[in-house]
């Protein structure tokens, strides 16, 4: 079963177009949505939630068309964490729990209080007095306290120190131990995505350049170092992207298309993304 089916999603602004985004995300997986600032990550998440009008395409979330009247009910099953926590600044976590209790039919006050404890969030301190890390933890506590089956996280770890980020990634990992639960996690901290994601989607200038299983990507691609001339001799289909400097050349290559005798190096997600982000690289 797919948690999300997205077909031909298009949204045009004056100076930016999210162009024909299509993907299926299986339930029970974590998708990392990566891309430079302004690539369309937040726009995609807003469109998945039908929070902004779209210009084309069709989206099904948890088996519900997101423009059908039933989608309001489906939103009960979706936890959202935005890059800023977006709660009124004078409200305390205790009061916020009450607001969310009125907003979500499946609100679990006990679970919420357990998260406040786990994250060491003082229940009676005003939101505006929280640090950035505490604000994000509060938003995550809310998102995880109404029996959500899908978590949408928009830059939920950006601006946080590595220890807090690690703590939060553990929480997301725990969430997906239930096989029905799915996470979409937008970030440009690629190392965070590499730690926890099953799938990677790479948005670049509003286009979906890549949507692939993370492990398959890491198995299939490698870095090849040599001279520019050596790289030019390769089958063009083998080269997904290359960088040529006065000191040598590097290419992101498909292992299976590289002739025997060439020595390749293991790559990581960050390298793959950086190569693909270069102009003229080959979409995978």
């Amino acid at each position: 079963m797919n948690a999300i089916q997205c077909r031909g999603l298009t949204k045009a602004y004056k100076d930016f177009t999210l162009d024909n985004i299509t993907f299926d995300l299986p339930a029970g997986t974590i998708l990392g949505l990566v891309g430079e600032n302004g690539a369309g990550k937040s726009t995609t998440l807003k469109l998945l939630m039908d929070a902004i009008p779209r210009d084309g395409g069709q989206i099904t979330v948890l088996d519900t068309d997101n423009q059908s009247p039933d989608f309001i009910q489906t939103k009960e099953d979706i936890g959202v964490v935005l890059d800023e926590a977006c709660f009124p600044e004078v409200i305390t976590p205790r009061e916020l729990g009450k607001v969310m209790g009125y907003a979500y039919q499946n609100w679990e006050q006990d679970r919420y209080e357990a998260y406040l404890d786990r994250f060491r969030l003082p229940p009676d301190k005003k939101f505006k007095e929280f640090s950035k890390g505490m604000k994000m933890k509060l938003a995550i506590a809310v998102a995880l306290s109404h029996k959500a089956k899908l978590l949408l996280l928009d830059e939920a770890t950006s601006g946080l120190d590595p220890m807090v980020r690690d703590e939060i990634l553990d929480v997301f990992n725990d969430f997906t131990r239930n096989e029905e639960n799915t996470v979409i996690f937008s970030s440009h901290i690629v190392s965070d995505l590499e730690k926890i994601c099953d799938y990677i989607a790479f948005l670049h200038h509003g286009k979906l350049v890549l949507f692939e299983e993370k492990d398959r990507l890491l198995e299939e691609y490698a870095i090849l170092k040599g001279t520019a001339q050596q790289l030019d001799e390769l089958d063009p289909a083998a080269v997904a992207g290359k960088k040529v400097t006065p000191y040598g050349a590097q290419a992101l290559v498909r292992r299976s298309l590289i002739p025997a005798g060439f020595v390749t190096e293991h790559t990581n997600l960050e390298d793959i993304i950086l190569f693909l982000a270069q102009e003229g690289s080959t979409s995978l």
């Binding site: 309001i72 939103k75 009960e76 979706i78 959202v80 935005l82 907003a103 979500y104 039919q105 949408l152």
Partner: peptide
């Protein structure tokens, strides 16, 4: 921005 994504 958050309210638009909640069940309202």
């Amino acid at each position: 921005a958050l309210a638009a994504m909640m069940p309202f």
